[in-house]
Design a protein around this nucleic acid. Structure first.
Lengths: 162, 162
DNA sequence: GAGAGACTACTCGGATACAGTCTGTCCGAGTAAATCCGG
DNA sequence: CCGGATTTACTCGGACAGACTGTATCCGAGTAGTCTCTC
């Protein structure tokens, strides 16, 4: 079980988009070039974000993406679920129902105990992702990334933002 | 991202093996029949448990599997990692290194901020799984499963335990 | 020179191939118990 | 009755398909800016 690389891409792209001033857009081409990724495939990750309503898009020259909400209203979970889907990581096939010692037609009242525990762990994972806002990531980056690189990056992005 | 069905199978099989008296073994065939699973494929999951040292095996007639440790010393995480592997669910390809604004040969001091957060969530998931012992699952089952089914199941298993 | 219309260039989004992993099956090698056979 | 050889039943491991998902690429639909042509 491993997350798609698109999750990583989407998170990094959102971090860049978070730095974009109100009303400006950044194209897939620019985001792909910045991260050294295949433009065509990256667009699929951005499409997922778009379908989930996390980003807004505009067509034509100087078109592209921008965040649909404030970075303070976007969590890691939003982005991860947009790409990976909202379904749980553990699916219960209820194999306990195959126990040959059960009376025919026996019906369970509560979900399988194994599944409940696995789902709790899944919820712990999601809960952690839900607790981290995109704005907090940007803040961390602005602290950790060397000032000159941070500045040049901002310029680079602004040069290409339509 | 979804866990293999083998994880579910391994957990249920361990629950059965936990009820097995000291020194008795239960075969793949019995476990497969009990859960209504393909014997050949289930054996792959049990092999994983064996390679991880979680179960002990004996060859020949009346051979099979038994737990290598007490159910109180076996956690969900042990079983899940035996089947799924111990590697993290999020892999960082360090795409930040492709930022064209970086000086050539620039070297990062700390891991990517995005990856750190994803790894924390991964650890939250593992931590939850680590906190649940197999003995606790068995206790829950003994409370929730109807007494007659629980008893018949025990007999069924003992009939086939070598 | 100005405005309306056509055109171009660029974008996103869906449709289409390729690859790797998960799922499932089959068979042979090795081993330990049970059985059989000769003394 | 006893001991050794044979048979049997089981695990283990590798080899091998089929299905599904992740990865990667391409092309069409649509839009915003630009250019041209007319007045």
């Amino acid at each position: 079980m491993i997350l798609k690389s698109q999750v990583e891409w989407a998170l990094h792209c959102c971090a860049i988009l978070a730095a974009l001033p109100e009303g400006r857009y950044l194209s897939t081409k620019a985001l792909a070039e910045f991260h050294g990724l295949p433009k065509e495939y990256l667009s699929k990750a951005l499409q997922s974000l778009s379908q989930a309503g996390l980003v807004h898009t505009t067509l034509g020259p100087s078109g592209g993406y921008r965040l649909a909400r404030s970075p303070d209203d976007l969590t890691f979970l939003d982005i991860v679920e947009a790409v990976e889907g909202k379904s749980r990581t553990f699916v219960c096939n209820n194999i306990r129902a195959n126990n040959p010692c059960r009376p025919a037609g026996f019906c369970d009242t509560s979900p399988c105990a194994v599944a409940r525990i696995m789902w709790e762990a899944d919820e712990a994972w999601r809960s952690k992702l839900r607790s981290v806002r995109l704005s907090s990531l940007v803040e961390t980056l602005s602290r950790e990334v060397r000032a000159d690189i941070w500045g040049k990056t901002f310029e680079w992005v602004m040069d290409r933002a339509g």
